[in-house]
Amino acid sequence: MSGRGFWFGLVLGAGVMGLLGQWGPAAAGKEVGQAPCIEAGLVAEYLHSVIQADRTFYTTDVVERMQMRGIAFAAENWRETSRLPLPAQYLLETGRLVAAGRSGLQYRLISQWAINNKNRPNSDFERAGLTEILLNPDRPYTAVTTDGRTRLFQAIYADKAASQSCVGCHNAHPNSPKKDFKPHDVMGGILLTIPLSH
């Protein structure tokens, strides 16, 4: 191949690649640069799956395992006593750390039978959601709400008693308004809040 043919092929190839590079994104989306969007309800499902998996692992493979072996124990006053946080506290603390970030994402536990008053429902949506998940615990209660000028997608998932230790702790706690939980009972909900405009 001559030097001239080589340069002609290189320029022609670069031109074709440039056109394909411009055509590909335009064909994939209506606007160039527009990122594909995932439905907020699906994002909530993904997040809930991760939160549940982390909490279940922490409950069964950290707290219960350590306690059975006498290595470490979980306690409500875990900071003062250098013990492990209770599984509910683990979820609340990780939710606090996420909320401190810039994403606007939030999650927390809520219950009409909360031991700690700050975990009681704060809005009509939360009260209605807690009632609804008692009736339909396998389906989240969702809505689009607003906080000032920010639209939010909110979902409440049933929070079930994952182990006997959860049931025992709540039934024996002096501040617990309900003392007859059984394994797998709905004890409250996990509230996820996802900003739709940030």
Rank of each mutant, 00 (worst) to 15 (best):
H173K: 04
A162E: 14
Q154K: 13
I194C: 05
N136F: 13
D180F: 04
Y141W: 15
K179T: 12
N136C: 04
C166S: 02
Q154W: 02
H184V: 10
I190W: 03
G148D: 04
A161L: 07
T193I: 12
G168A: 13
C169R: 12
Q164C: 07
F181T: 05
E132D: 13
H184Y: 14
F153I: 03
I156F: 06
R151D: 06
T145Q: 03
I194H: 04
F153L: 03
G148L: 09
M187L: 07
N171H: 06
P174I: 09
N171L: 02
V167G: 10
K160T: 15
I190E: 01
K178A: 00
R139Q: 13
E132M: 13
L192W: 13
K178S: 00
G148I: 12
I194A: 03
K178W: 06
E132H: 14
F153S: 03
N175H: 11
A158V: 11
L152G: 01
A155N: 06
A143H: 12
V167H: 09
G148K: 09
P183C: 04
C169K: 09
K160Y: 06
I133R: 00
A143Y: 11
A158T: 10
A172N: 12
A158M: 08
G189C: 08
V167E: 05
T145L: 11
H170M: 05
L152N: 08
R151F: 12
V167Q: 06
A143D: 13
P174E: 06
P174Y: 09
D185M: 07
Y141N: 06
T150F: 12
K160H: 13
L192Y: 13
